[in-house]
């Protein structure tokens, strides 16, 4: 970067950009609410939401942590199960062909329809939320790991097989490392889905968590608090996404070597 004039030209715009956009969004929001005098029970202004956050800080914190744990537990299950199932399906074309339609079918079921069944089996509380987070987030992990395995270069396989390599050798030396970028990419998608799953279940049948808190706030007509809950969720989502993206960059830096969007 050029350093001919101090100040303005020295700002790292790539780093500043997310902050500027976020602040800009809230500023426009705030201004619109005042200019069009929108009542707070339709759309509260960011300042009103901020006040609600301050007012209910304790409860908001408690429920956010609850939702975070629920989500992470379901997500962890999705990682373990998704990775194993992905490797299993990617192992053989016939397994892939057999299980893929079943998985598509399962993934097409709206998870909101599954929650009542989970509640029936396990009762209301945190367990259905964990399971919903798990059920909604394992699919992208499975698909991506299986895709990584399916796209091994045939020449590479020939090189190894001509040396007498067993299928397990090809899997360990080539298949698994090759599918890691897909796996870590899938984690970024899966963590946001996991939040959707846990909050969904909490809004239907739970006695704590952000979803439950939102439902209560709505019933009491505390619209700013409803929005405060949404923002708390967004913050958690961004935080977890950042962790996953950092992990991806750290583990599979070799896969991100193009200068395409620099």
């Amino acid at each position: 970067m050029q350093t001919k004039s101090a100040g303005f030209a020295n700002i790292d715009w790539v780093r500043a950009s997310p902050w500027l956009c976020t602040i800009g969004l809230f500023a426009i929001w705030e201004a619109s609410v005042w200019v069009f005098s929108i009542p707070y029970y339709i759309l509260p202004a960011p300042t009103q939401i901020g006040y609600a956050m301050y007012e209910f800080a304790g409860a908001l914190w408690f429920n956010s942590i609850q939702t975070l744990w629920t989500t992470l537990l379901g997500f962890a299950m999705a990682i373990v199960f998704g990775l194993l199932l992905g490797l299993f399906i990617g192992w053989d074309k016939r397994i892939y062909a057999g299980l893929y339609p079943l998985m598509i079918g399962f993934n097409s079921i709206p998870k909101i329809a599954v929650v009542p069944i989970l509640v029936l089996w396990f009762g209301a509380g945190w367990l259905p939320a964990v399971l919903t987070a798990f059920l909604i987030s394992f699919f992208p992990i499975v698909v991506n790991v299986a895709t990584g395995l399916a796209t091994i270069e045939p020449e590479m396989e020939d090189v190894l097989r001509a040396l007498g390599a067993k299928k397990l050798d090809v899997m360990v030396k080539v298949g698994i490392p090759r599918s890691l970028p897909y796996f870590f990419g899938a984690l970024k998608v899966a963590i946001t889905l996991a939040f959707i799953g846990s909050v969904l279940s909490e809004t239907i049948a739970a006695n704590s968590g952000i979803g439950h808190m939102m439902l209560t706030a709505q019933a009491n007509f505390e619209v700013p608090l409803v929005f405060a809950c949404l923002i708390a969720l967004a913050v958690e989502g961004i935080g977890m996404y950042a962790i996953m993206a950092g992990l991806e960059q750290r583990m599979t830096g070799w896969a991100h070597r193009s200068g395409f969007n620099r």
Binding site: V159, L160, K173, V174, P177, W254
Partner: peptide, 26 residues
Amino acid sequence: AGMAFQNPVMLPWRSTRDNVLLPMEV
């Protein structure tokens, strides 16, 4: 047998040396 193709098919996560040593691991 050793094989080489038009496409060098190197594993991008391994250093060149570790790529060369791949057959030795098999």
